[in-house]
């Protein structure tokens, strides 16, 4: 009998009345079904899982690799607007983010995380998508500030995208205008918790599907 490894779930968030936002996320955010792995790797994993209790090994390996991943998330410096100044303050002396292992890195090809800090405009949206595409998997995105969350104070402007999740899939939303560095650090730590649930052998942790 084949024992299937369990799919980890992220604990449900405290707010529960945003049913249609989750609806929106399910419909609009396109994530790759599985991360790209080599066929050799897949066959090794299948082999390990064919033994009874084999998933203990992969779960332990998952935990180890997730710990390594979350301790070394390199954000790409993608400052758009005012939130970029607070992001720079978070990366700098007082609210040092390098103690979490996050080295801000200019090139998207070498980074894991995109902190969208600032208003996304219609002119900038294709550039943002291009930078996100240039990041290799596994990658995460954090939406910082109310402009990136939903358009913010400029939501009714003709040139403003109503939230960066219309452009790229987002993992963590940090509210504020701008969020002070403490809030951004909270968001980054929440992201680290999400990464800890990431599954190397397959899909990302599925959000809690049926919440009754």
């Amino acid at each position: 009998m084949e024992i299937k490894a369990p799919i980890p779930v992220i604990p449900a968030p405290i707010w529960r009345d945003i049913k249609d936002l989750q609806e929106w996320e399910r419909l609009r955010q396109h994530r790759p079904v599985g991360d790209k792995h080599s066929a050799l790797f897949e066959s090794i994993t299948e082999g390990v899982h064919s033994f009874p209790g084999g998933f203990v090994v992969t779960t332990a390996a998952d935990a180890f690799f997730n710990w390594a991943r979350k301790s070394s998330v390199w954000p790409v410096t993608f400052g758009l607007a005012c939130c970029a100044i607070e992001m720079m303050a978070t990366f700098a002396s007082r609210f040092d983010v390098e103690r979490l292992g996050m080295v801000p890195w200019a090139s998207p090809r070498h980074s894991d995380l995109m902190v969208v800090s600032g208003t996304v405009t219609i002119k900038m949206a294709p550039m943002l998508e291009r930078i996100y595409d240039q990041m290799p998997d596994p990658k995460w995105a954090l939406s910082m500030g109310s402009c990136a969350n939903s358009g913010g104070p400029f939501r009714h402007g003709y040139h403003v995208v109503k939230g960066v999740d219309r452009v790229i899939p987002i993992d963590v939303y940090v509210p504020g205008c701008p969020p002070p560095p403490e809030s951004l650090l909270n968001g980054l730590l929440l992201l680290q918790d999400q990464i800890a649930h990431f599954r190397r052998t397959g899909q990302r942790a599925a959000p809690n599907a049926k919440v009754d």
């Binding site: 758009l80 607007a81 600032g118 208003t119 405009t121 002119k123 900038m124 550039m127 400029f154 402007g157 003709y158 040139h159 403003v160």
Partner: peptide, 8 residues
């Protein structure tokens, strides 16, 4: 080229 932050 500017205008990437034109927020109306």
């Amino acid at each position: 080229v500017i205008g990437y932050l034109h927020r109306c």
